[in-house]
């Protein structure tokens, strides 16, 4: 039997300046529109403005999303942004520009960004889609660009497209599965099935004391509830919750004896009639960043919530894409 061509394509576009950027992205968008394909652009705000202006009247035919908001937590880009758009157009080939990594990404965010890029290949395998990921070669570290060659099967540089010799996305998924260190003095609570409400109240009480805006308290309660319930149901029946403040964020960390074997857990959008399977997805939707470390000794999931309002849409996801 002849091998079937993989319908999903996932090129990285290396660009050095705005001219490069537009040369690599505009024909991609316009080609999609000309072919009648649904097109979405999810890139950082400044790049979004650049593309919107360059597209002129065609901008109205493209779904435009500020990735700094929609994709602040890299863990929700696949379910909410990419599959959110692709699934809204069943049976049609879609084109998406997704730029999840920019100069301002922190050292804490970056491992989750790289894992996200690697997991796109699994999440979209066999699907009719092209996801083009621009990388700013002038501003990003060489290590980031090297990772992009591992997470993307195709590279576009100076207008030339070629297969990546380094493509091996699972190495990135496992390589960034890093132990997470916790600051001394973080508040700690051990829980089991009897103490699930205590775990929620414990996190909420500290969230209030640290000044988390009141309209995000439910996000913390829901995220902590899902993580601690997962420990009780799937992670050995008990676990430990730690809460602390770090770099302008409230951090809630849950450790248990379970092992997360599905790398796409929490990244598959839920179908409306689906029973269960929304816990980690919800944690990804509500948090500003989620980091995970899993291994034989157990699983740690850490979620971050911004303590201060940086912008008007600072809250997790708001409306469906």
């Amino acid at each position: 039997m002849a091998p079937t061509a993989e319908p999903f394509t996932h090129p990285a576009l290396f660009y050095a300046d705005e001219t490069d950027y537009l040369a690599g992205t505009l024909p991609f968008v316009e080609g999609g529109l000309a072919a009648g394909e649904p097109v979405a652009v999810a890139v950082p705000g400044q790049k979004l403005a650049l593309l919107r202006e360059a597209l002129g009247g065609d901008a109205d035919r493209v779904k435009l999303l500020d990735m700094e908001q929609a994709g602040r937590n890299p863990g929700r880009i696949i379910p909410r942004v990419l599959r959110g758009f692709a699934d809204a157009h069943p049976g049609r080939r879609v084109r998406i520009i997704g730029e999840p990594i920019w100069q301002g990404r922190t050292a804490g965010e970056y491992p989750a960004c790289a894992q996200h890029e690697a997991l796109i290949n699994h999440a979209f395998a066999g699907r009719d889609a092209t996801i083009l990921c621009p990388y700013d070669t002038a501003k990003l570290d060489e290590a980031v660009l090297a990772d992009a060659r591992v997470t993307h099967p195709v590279l576009i540089e100076d207008g030339v497209e070629r297969a990546s010799d380094a493509y091996a996305p699972d190495l990135i998924v496992s390589g960034y599965n890093l132990p997470l260190s916790r600051p001394p003095g973080a508040a700690r609570l051990a829980y089991d099935a009897d103490r699930l409400p205590d775990a929620r109240h414990f996190a909420l009480e500290r969230a209030g004391r640290m000044g988390l805006p009141a309209d995000r308290h439910d996000d913390v309660a829901l995220a902590v509830a899902e993580l601690t319930t997962n420990s009780v149901v799937h992670g050995g029946g008990a676990g430990t919750l730690w809460v602390w403040a770090e770099d302008d964020h409230l951090v809630c960390e849950v450790r248990d004896r379970g092992r997360l074997t599905d790398p796409l857990a929490g990244r598959r959008p839920a179908r409306p009639g689906q029973i269960g399977g929304r816990g980690l997805l919800l944690v990804n939707y509500l948090s500003d960043l989620v980091r995970v470390h899993t291994g034989d000794e157990g699983t740690t999931v850490r979620c971050y919530f911004r303590l201060r309002r940086h912008d008007p849409s600072f809250r997790g996801v708001q409306t469906p894409v």
Binding site: P183, G185, A186, A187, R188, D194, R195, M210, A245
Partner: peptide, 13 residues
């Protein structure tokens, strides 16, 4: 990182 509290225990409800 700014530690806010020491190890705390909550009485089980």
């Amino acid at each position: 990182a700014v530690p806010h509290t020491e190890d705390v225990s909550v009485s089980g409800h």
